[in-house]
Design a binder for these strands. Structure first.
Length: 658
DNA sequence: TTAAGCTTTCTTTTT
DNA sequence: GAAAGCTTAA
């Protein structure tokens, strides 16, 4: 039996044990949000609730697996059958079963951002060339963004553009709308869904099909949602529909940590929650268990600069400690050197590496640091930047698999075709329009006829003969496919195009090995689209780590990826104006505030030691950097300043926290 | 129509 | 400093 009374404070205890009905937990950073959620799950299971009846939605897959691990620890067993994961992952799981109700097949492919961009660009080029438009008509990338943003806000594209692009003619707005519709049709014809579709179609499934709706309203007797401040209207609607029957809905969040408005997150979802669910019990968690008073003070002072916020009074219970350090280095290299030395020192003193994290606004800021850590032999895990499955060579091979699994996938077909000599954009399009006439791959292999130049015909023959081999594989489909594709020219392609072709070929073999964990190609392909595994995460034997294997390694992470996590020691690097806050955000006040919340998230990840670092000089251009607003606006008594002297560049004595 | 070669851009965050 | 965009030769 778990002693909940002892493990939790009063507010947490109330939320965990009397959490039937709608509950809103407004929780400051480090106040035990995750603790509340995990203990609530454990409590429910201990009370005899079948884990199958629990839906636990988190923001990242990482957060989901960490949370379930914690539940397992509390319960001493894994809550088998629980529905846990991100909105997209759970949407995917449901749609794999019910996609036919919406006119898709269950083997639909998922288009990641790049895929969907490529498909949209195709629609854009086709329509934009046919129609009158001014030079001010937004580029494909912007249209792509607008379409996604409008959909995630449940808005009409015309309305969105009418407001922010009022200089466009109504014909141009119509053009944007037809591009959007054409794109939607192409997706449907391709039996493919983009990330937004995973949410929107999930919602459609619930609103349009009462049997399914009722089944899942019944199924999910207890619903728990983390980071509710970062949900968008579609996600909010989904939750509302699912919860309306049993009303056992617990959502947690913190408006000060809302950092996804660029993805159409709405703070109002959490603030209006009590109106949507009458008799909502509200719990405020205001005790911070994580950070020292000094760290918390800095965070609190910083967020005070935001006008748009809800007052809260977060108090630390830890005892007084050292102030955060603000460290000035000459440039990124010196900053990197300092950090790696400091990390070595901390580890020598007995700190465990996985309790140390380096956080940054953008992945490129960590470049020099990566070099330095490699030089010093400090193992690290990178979370941010290019993902393993987003690399060109991976996506090339995955396209073959996508065609194999979903013959109608236009994006995948085009990508495969264009890998071959003599086939470019135009020819690929023409060939695909022939392929469209078939229904299964086997027919296309046998019957496809295309007249082009000799070069094109040879390339096409080559493509088809590869597929001929691929369709005959019966076991270890992915691993064998990788081998066949490499053998039939892709290896040569890698060699002629990339210096690091060995590494890339190795990645592909790793992918083959990794795929053994999946029952089917479809399963594997979903995972590829939805997983967060980052590139560069290799151990000594050069094996890519897709999960786990993070023991004894420090963490490098974007702040977005760090949400919900905590470490003893945190370095926040690159506090340069224009980088953090990002310069794109200058004009818009509301976006500066979002950047500040991001800064707030970063510093509140730290339990005991917090370092803020600033390189004075840009290492590329040798220009002087401005220090970040987020430092400048702070009272200087909140931190201790170390390192270079701004006037003279003089070295100051060795820096030590203690 | 492709592919190479040159130029310009613009540097975000993520499922 | 890479990637997209544009120009030009083949």
């Amino acid at each position: 039996m778990i002693n909940f009374k002892e493990e939790l404070n009063n507010e947490q205890f109330e939320a965990v044990t009397k959490g039937d009905g709608p509950v809103l937990v407004l929780a400051g950073a480090g106040s035990g949000k995750t603790r509340t959620l995990t203990y609530r799950v454990a409590y429910l299971v201990e009370q005899g609730v079948d884990p199958e009846n629990i839906l636990l939605v988190t923001f990242t897959n990482k957060a989901s697996s960490e949370m379930l691990e914690r539940v397992e620890k509390i319960l001493n067993r894994y809550p088998r059958g629980i529905w846990g994961g991100t909105f997209h992952r759970i949407g995917n799981r449901l749609l794999r079963k019910y996609a036919t109700l919406l006119g898709y097949k269950n083997n639909f492919t998922i288009l990641d951002r790049e895929d969907s961009m490529v498909l949209l660009k195709q629609c854009y080029d086709e329509l934009a060339n046919k129609n009158e438009k001014s030079n001010y008509f937004p580029k494909a990338k912007i249209i792509h963004n607008l379409i996604g943003f409008a959909r995630n806000r449940g808005m009409d594209l015309r309305d969105l553009m009418g407001k922010s692009y009022d200089y466009l003619s109504s014909q141009e707005i119509d053009l944007a709308q037809s591009i959007s519709e054409y794109y939607a049709r192409k997706k449907k014809d391709s039996n493919a869904m983009d990330f937004d579709d995973l949410l929107i179609n999930w919602l459609k499934l619930l609103t349009g099909h009462s049997k399914v709706r009722e089944k899942f309203q019944e199924q999910f007797k207890y619903i728990l949602v983390d980071e509710y401040q970062d949900t968008n209207v579609i996600q909010d609607k989904i939750i509302n529909i699912l919860a309306v029957k049993n009303k056992n809905i617990l959502v947690v969040g913190d408006d000060s940590q809302s950092i996804y408005s660029f993805r159409a997150a709405e703070i109002s979802n959490i603030l209006d929650f009590p109106q949507n669910f009458p008799k909502t019990k509200i719990h405020k968690l205001e005790t911070n268990y994580r950070s020292t008073p000094e760290i918390l003070e800095l965070a609190n002072q910083s967020i005070l600069n935001n006008e748009n916020k809800y007052p809260k009074n977060l108090k630390s219970i830890k005892s007084e400690n050292k102030k955060p350090l603000f460290v000035v280095g000459r440039d990124n290299r010196e900053q990197a050197k300092f950090i790696s030395q400091e990390i070595s020192r901390l580890i020598d003193q007995g700190e465990s590496p996985q309790e140390i994290a380096v956080l940054f606004r953008s992945a490129f800021q960590a470049l020099e640091l990566e070099l330095e850590l490699n030089r010093e032999g400090i193992p690290y895990t990178m979370r941010g930047g290019i993902k393993f499955f987003e690399q060109k060579h991976i996506k090339d091979i995955v396209s073959y698999l996508k065609v194999l699994s979903n013959f109608k996938d236009e994006t995948a077909w085009r990508r495969v075709l264009m890998l071959h000599e003599g086939i470019g954009l135009q020819t690929a399009g023409k060939i695909f329009s022939q392929i469209k006439n078939f229904n299964i791959l086997e027919d296309a292999i046998k019957l496809l006829e295309f007249k082009g130049s000799e070069k094109i015909n040879n390339s096409l023959k080559n493509v088809l003969s590869i597929f001929k081999e691929l369709v005959e594989i019966k076991e270890d489909v992915i691993q064998s496919s990788v081998k066949i594709i490499l053998k039939n020219g892709y290896n040569l392609y890698l060699k002629t195009n990339f210096e690091n072709f060995l590494e890339r070929a190795d990645d592909l073999n790793q992918m083959g090995a990794f795929s053994e964990n999946y029952k089917s190609v479809d399963d594997f392909l979903s995972e590829v689209a939805l997983t967060e595994a980052f590139k560069n995460n290799r151990n000594q034997s050069n094996v890519v780590q897709v999960e786990d294997g993070e023991k004894d390694k420090i963490i490098l992470s974007t702040i977005h990826q760090a949400k919900g996590l905590e470490w003893n020691t945190v370095f926040v690097i690159g506090l340069v104006d224009g980088q953090f806050p990002h310069r794109k955000v200058y004009e818009k006040h509301s976006e500066i505030e979002e950047e500040r919340r991001l800064f707030y998230v970063a510093v509140t990840r730290a339990k005991d030691k917090l370092y803020l670092t600033y390189p004075m000089v840009s290492s590329r251009s040798e220009d002087m950097n401005e220090v970040s607003t987020f430092i400048e606006e702070l009272d200087e008594s909140l931190f201790e300043k170390k390192g270079r002297n701004e006037e003279s560049f003089d070295d100051l004595p060795v820096i030590e926290y203690e």
